[in-house]
């Protein structure tokens, strides 16, 4: 058999050495430059360990800018509520639906005194109603769609209506809604336009 009888040691020279030369200084300089960059990067992108700051936002201020405001009137929420509730009859563009609901665009009821406007969603309205000189009659009266809304939400919806589709009226505040609610008390009978016109414009 041609195999070696016994595995034989294979000749080999010594183990490697490492030279003791100094490392290049520029590498240390580069390290400090990169460390400095790293600090600046972390400062700008970390949100300083705040657990509410996620990519792609890098600071708490940036995140807070996109939070819904806690005070005042939230028009974005108003739009969402309008699109989900009111727009079923009044249309998302506020033009109303023939035979169902009157338009809001330029309507004197919408941009008019808040004390009258707030009362409508709270207990409803029964026609005929005149808007911009045109008289609308409906088979059914409007139900109290806004009765279950919170004061904030109702103020948001009404403010949205007063500031959209070309309407330019000051927003309705939540305090106004609260005051009107208190005045109405337990009334369940829908308003008529004539009744509403009796309410002082304040």
């Amino acid at each position: 058999m041609p195999e070696p009888i016994q595995p034989t040691p294979i000749a080999e020279t010594g183990e490697p050495q490492a030279s003791q030369l100094a490392m290049p200084v520029w590498l240390l300089v580069l390290m400090f430059l990169l460390l400095y960059w790293g600090m600046v990067y972390f400062d700008q992108h970390s949100g300083w360990f705040n657990t509410e700051v996620y990519v792609p936002y890098y600071s708490l201020a940036e995140v807070q800018e996109f939070q819904p405001p806690t005070g005042g009137v939230d028009l974005q929420r108003g739009k969402a509520l309008f699109d989900n509730v009111c727009a079923l009859c009044h249309n998302p563009d506020g033009m109303g639906k023939p035979g169902q609901a009157p338009p809001f665009v330029g309507s004197e009821w919408v941009v008019g005194p808040p004390s009258r406007l707030i009362r409508i969603p709270l207990v409803g309205l029964t026609g005929p109603v005149s808007v911009k000189g045109q008289v609308f009659t409906f088979a059914a009266s409007m139900p109290p769609m806004g009765a279950s809304f919170s004061n904030d939400d109702l103020a948001a919806v009404l403010s949205y209506m007063r500031q959209s589709w070309g309407n330019k009226a000051p927003p309705v505040t939540s305090d106004e809604v609260k005051a009107v609610r208190a005045q109405i008390g337990n009334r369940a009978q829908p308003w008529t336009p004539q009744e509403l016109m009796q309410i002082p414009a304040k």
Binding site: M23, L27, L30, M31, L34, L35, W37, G38, M39, Y41, F42, H45, S46, G47, W48, F49, N50, T51, E52, V53, Y54, V55, Y57, Y58
Partner: peptide, 27 residues
């Protein structure tokens, strides 16, 4: 990963450290 859906300081730290591994590569 830089786009990880975790609090921003974690990917920021990871990115800074990854860039610093350039030193290892250069060395």
């Amino acid at each position: 990963p830089a786009s990880a859906p975790v609090p921003a300081w974690i990917p920021a730290l990871s990115t800074a450290a990854t860039v610093l591994t350039l030193l290892t590569i250069i060395a």
